[in-house]
Amino acid sequence: MQDTARLVLSLLDLTSLDDTDTDEDIQRLCRRANTKGGHPAAVCVLTHLVAQARTALANLDLQDTVRVATVVNFPEGDQSADEVVDQIRAALTSGADEIDLVFPYRALMSGDERLGYHLVSRCRQASSGHVLKVILETGELKSSELIRTAAEIALAAGADFLKTSTGKVAVNATPEAAAVMMETIRDSGRPVGFKAAGGIRTTEQAAVYLDLGREILGEQWLRPERFRFGASGLLDDLLQRLGSGVRPVDLRSRY
């Protein structure tokens, strides 16, 4: 299980998306990314805290190792395209590397397929040169048919990753939804990534998604450029499996 934990750690987007997050919380999150067992792929924070995350990682000498991701149209997925594009531009100006965009899933549930395509296309243009992950909110879509439709729309509009969930609804990542998303990626013939997010707290739970990835997409997908986990509590379990902890770096003099 140590090998699995080490792999999952390298695929992790270490996440904190609470409305109450402060600068100190983000500094703490970034310090958690500085582990003896390796580093996560990214930290994921709210848009107005991107600059703080970028500074904290630089002070840890992790600015070239750990990416900064943020969320837009979050968490409801119901903002206008102009509003979301403005959020993306602000995030990129602050130093974001990756954008996690909530798909307008309620519009799709009401029968509107055009809105999702329009929004993802606009956001693809606004985030050109940066990774765009599209959050389908599969626990709300529920049916395999709607999940597949949302995935196909996001792929057609230029998504780099398909992501399961915001982590803010009753049902988040499930293996069943993940399988539908991975099959849609496979059938597209494009090198699009997959991200499982919400409710994944143990190495064993993460391993279920790795096994699905191997079966549906292939071993070559299990790298940060193609496969991610979005979680916060998962890190503690990974480090316990690895017998590691956070590096004891005293940063008080740097802030």
Results as ranks from 00 to 15, higher is better:
residue 236 D to E: 15
residue 153 I to N: 01
residue 77 G to H: 02
residue 251 L to N: 11
residue 154 A to G: 06
residue 17 L to M: 00
residue 178 A to C: 12
residue 191 P to G: 06
residue 250 D to A: 09
residue 19 D to G: 14
residue 247 R to G: 02
residue 216 I to C: 15
residue 5 A to E: 03
residue 91 A to P: 01
residue 109 M to L: 00
residue 127 S to N: 04
residue 165 S to L: 04
residue 226 R to F: 08
residue 146 L to K: 13
residue 243 G to S: 15
residue 107 A to W: 10
residue 97 D to V: 07
residue 102 V to D: 11
residue 130 H to D: 04
residue 87 Q to L: 00
residue 136 L to H: 10
residue 36 K to N: 10
residue 122 R to M: 10
residue 132 L to T: 04
residue 100 D to Y: 03
residue 6 R to A: 04
residue 85 V to S: 01
residue 60 L to N: 15
residue 190 R to D: 08
residue 205 Q to R: 10
residue 210 L to S: 12
residue 2 Q to P: 05
residue 76 E to Y: 13
residue 170 A to D: 07
residue 197 A to H: 06
residue 20 T to K: 09
residue 45 V to K: 09
residue 241 R to A: 00
residue 21 D to W: 00
residue 113 E to G: 00
residue 178 A to L: 15
residue 242 L to Y: 01
residue 162 L to A: 00
residue 214 R to S: 06
residue 213 G to Y: 01
residue 213 G to C: 12
residue 187 D to H: 02
residue 210 L to I: 02
residue 210 L to G: 05
residue 23 D to E: 07
residue 57 L to S: 10
residue 36 K to G: 10
residue 227 F to L: 11
residue 144 S to F: 11
residue 138 T to R: 10
residue 2 Q to I: 15
residue 253 S to I: 11
residue 74 F to S: 10
residue 57 L to Y: 05
residue 155 L to G: 03
residue 127 S to W: 02
residue 151 A to C: 14
residue 255 Y to H: 08
residue 232 S to Y: 02
residue 118 H to I: 03
residue 133 K to L: 13
residue 183 E to V: 07
residue 179 A to S: 14
residue 230 G to W: 08
residue 233 G to M: 02
residue 172 N to G: 01
residue 248 P to F: 14
residue 166 T to M: 02
residue 185 I to L: 06
residue 217 L to Q: 09
residue 231 A to C: 06
residue 181 M to I: 06
residue 18 D to C: 14
residue 128 S to Q: 14
residue 95 G to L: 08
residue 16 S to G: 08
residue 228 R to A: 13
residue 81 A to S: 01
residue 90 A to T: 10
residue 124 R to D: 01
residue 229 F to S: 08
residue 35 T to F: 12
residue 167 G to F: 03
residue 161 F to D: 03
residue 112 D to L: 04
residue 88 I to P: 01
residue 228 R to D: 08
residue 221 W to Q: 08
residue 177 A to P: 02
residue 209 Y to F: 06
residue 246 V to D: 10
residue 187 D to G: 04
residue 16 S to T: 13
residue 15 T to M: 12
residue 39 H to M: 11
residue 196 A to C: 13
residue 14 L to N: 12
residue 203 T to H: 15
residue 235 L to D: 10
residue 164 T to E: 05
residue 55 T to W: 07
residue 246 V to L: 11
residue 39 H to D: 11
residue 211 D to C: 02
residue 166 T to Y: 09
residue 23 D to I: 04
residue 153 I to C: 00
residue 204 E to Q: 09
residue 114 R to G: 01
residue 106 R to F: 03
residue 228 R to Y: 09
residue 53 A to Q: 14
residue 137 E to M: 02
residue 180 V to Q: 00
residue 170 A to M: 07
residue 187 D to M: 05
residue 3 D to P: 13
residue 18 D to A: 12
residue 90 A to N: 13
residue 9 L to G: 07
residue 209 Y to M: 03
residue 82 D to C: 02
residue 166 T to P: 03
residue 163 K to A: 04
residue 248 P to T: 14
residue 12 L to A: 09
residue 79 Q to H: 01
residue 46 L to I: 04
residue 223 R to N: 13
residue 14 L to P: 09
residue 84 V to C: 09
residue 211 D to T: 07
residue 85 V to C: 09
residue 94 S to W: 04
residue 92 L to S: 04
residue 162 L to P: 05
residue 112 D to E: 07
residue 4 T to D: 03
residue 106 R to K: 08
residue 212 L to F: 05
residue 68 V to P: 06
residue 69 A to L: 09
residue 6 R to L: 14
residue 145 E to K: 07
